[in-house]
Design a protein around this nucleic acid. Structure first.
Length: 466
DNA sequence: CGTAATGATTGTAC
DNA sequence: GTACAATCATTACG
């Protein structure tokens, strides 16, 4: 107490000399009396707490009206300033919290925070739509988006609420302090500091909000991913299309981006699903080629048939004025087994008529550049050979009457035509021709040396993969 | 209900 | 980025 009053007095002299604080000290030779006054006021301040409320109120009023009050006020403010700074000097600086930045970034990335135009539901809808832009399976994402927009809405309303509360509280405190500054020494700096403290408090609350929002998004995300894990098998048709492509590009089963897109469109699945499928197929085929042999042969047959049809169409197109051959006459085949093969052929015909009609050129190229063109191994299951057999010198072997399915008979027939005993065992119809010793596929070699039968007439390369 | 098939994910390498 | 390999989790099937 005693020391403090002494300090005050000292400061009143020293600091005021340094700072041109407007202290209306009349320099008219009444220094001694002023000191006496100040001492008196200080004494009254010190003892004011010991007095009763009414007494204190009266004293306060008296002090307020004291002529030395403004000067003393500034001095006290300065003292408070000094002591305040010395107590929490380092607290003034608040470097950007790395965690807050992380949260902000995440919320921005997830589309929860970020630019919001107009506000309200419309903005939320716009924002969520923007979030879903990259989604190729929008149906699957709709639920996710709905939930995310819900989170976003809650986040923004809460944030707004906090901001409003923060502002209200700040103005309230500021008013209060300004009010009080008439009766006790409160410098503007102190008010500013108080406002900062309030803001800090509220920003810490905001951080909690951000954190919980992030958590909510994370939970939603994981749930969404879990939901995506719940797979559904592709439709039979989609699997057929994919398999067809795979086995007709067995030498290099890496569909280009465009091919993937087309396959995705045809199969009504996403491009990434096509990629997944090919990834799985390649690895599983490679792992157990024997297991896939039957499938390979089946699709080889299908492809062969399609190719035959395509070639037939091409031939018909190119030979516009050639003597019209009967519809069945396009495929000259042996009388004895012709019927059997024809049955299978017709089936395949029906199955793939659509494809052949809608993308003839593509199929042709699949046949000849994709499969035939890149085969390097002699005697590999080759559309070229199948074609030559179908178009001209098809010499079917005896088909065993062991109750084969139509597909089996086709496979067998073609296998025979290529000189293989049976596609399933022994020399496979679809040997892993494209597979190198290390278990990887050979690079798709440009079939420069291998000339496709129709390469000259129809020199279109559709095998754009790699 | 056990098992194979299959679509999706994750970790690693290039 | 993609491809591969391993793995997970669900679905289909006997």
């Amino acid at each position: 107490m005693e020391e403090q009053s002494h300090l005050m007095q000292t400061l009143s002299g020293v600091t005021l000399a340094g700072h041109p604080v407007a202290l209306p000290v009349p320099h008219d030779g009444t220094d001694a009396r002023n000191k006496q006054d100040i001492g008196d006021i200080l004494h009254q301040i010190m003892t004011i707490t010991d007095q009763s409320l009414d007494e204190a109120q009266a004293k306060k009023h008296g002090l307020n009206c004291h002529r030395m009050k403004p000067a003393l006020f500034s001095v006290l403010c300065e003292i408070k300033e000094k002591t305040g700074l010395s107590i929490r000097g380092s607290q003034d600086e608040d470097p950007p919290d790395p965690q807050l930045m992380r949260l902000d970034n995440m919320l921005l990335a997830e589309g929860v925070s970020g630019p919001e135009k107009g506000g309200g539901a419309a903005a939320v809808a716009v924002a969520t739509a923007a979030v879903g832009v990259g989604a190729d399976n929008s149906i699957e994402h709709s639920d996710y988006r709905a939930k995310l927009s819900q989170i976003r809405q809650i986040y923004h309303t809460e944030l707004e609420k906090y901001e409003q509360a923060c502002n209200e509280f700040t103005t309230h405190v500021m008013n209060l302090l300004r009010e009080q500054s008439r009766t006790r020494p409160i410098s503007p700096k102190e008010i500013e500091r108080m406002v900062n403290i309030i803001h800090r408090k509220f920003s810490s609350i905001q951080m909690q909000l951000k954190q919980s929002t992030c958590e909510a998004v994370m939970i939603l995300r994981s749930r969404f991913l879990d939901a995506r894990r719940k797979r559904r098998n592709f439709s039979k048709q989609a699997t057929e299309i994919l398999n067809e492509y795979f086995y007709s590009h067995l030498s290099n089963p890496y569909p280009s981006e465009e091919a993937k897109e087309e396959l995705a469109k045809k199969c009504a699945i996403t491009v990434s699903q096509v990629s997944n499928w090919f990834g799985n197929k390649r690895i599983r085929y490679k792992k157990n080629i024997g297991k896939f042999q039957e499938e390979a042969n089946l699709y080889a047959a299908k492809t062969a048939v399609t190719a035959a049809q395509a070639v037939a169409a091409a031939v018909q197109n190119s030979q516009t004025n050639s003597p019209a051959t009967p519809s069945s006459g396009t495929h000259t085949m042996d009388e004895t087994t012709g019927a059997n093969f024809h049955k299978g052929f017709q089936m395949k015909d029906e199955d793939f008529q659509l494809d052949a009609a809608e993308d003839k050129n593509n199929l042709l190229n699949n046949m000849f550049t994709g499969s035939s063109g890149s085969y390097s191994l002699p005697g590999s299951g080759d559309m070229f050979m199948s074609m030559s057999g179908l178009n001209g010198s098809y010499q079917p072997a005896q088909v065993p009457s062991t109750g084969q399915t139509q597909g089996d008979s086709i496979r067998h027939a073609i296998g025979q035509s290529l000189g293989y005993s049976d596609g399933l065992r022994g020399n496979p119809l679809y040997s892993p021709h494209g597979l190198n010793g290390n278990g990887g596929w050979h690079d798709a070699v440009t079939p420069s040396s291998v000339t496709s039968p129709i390469e000259g007439a129809n020199s279109v390369h559709s095998d754009t993969s790699n």
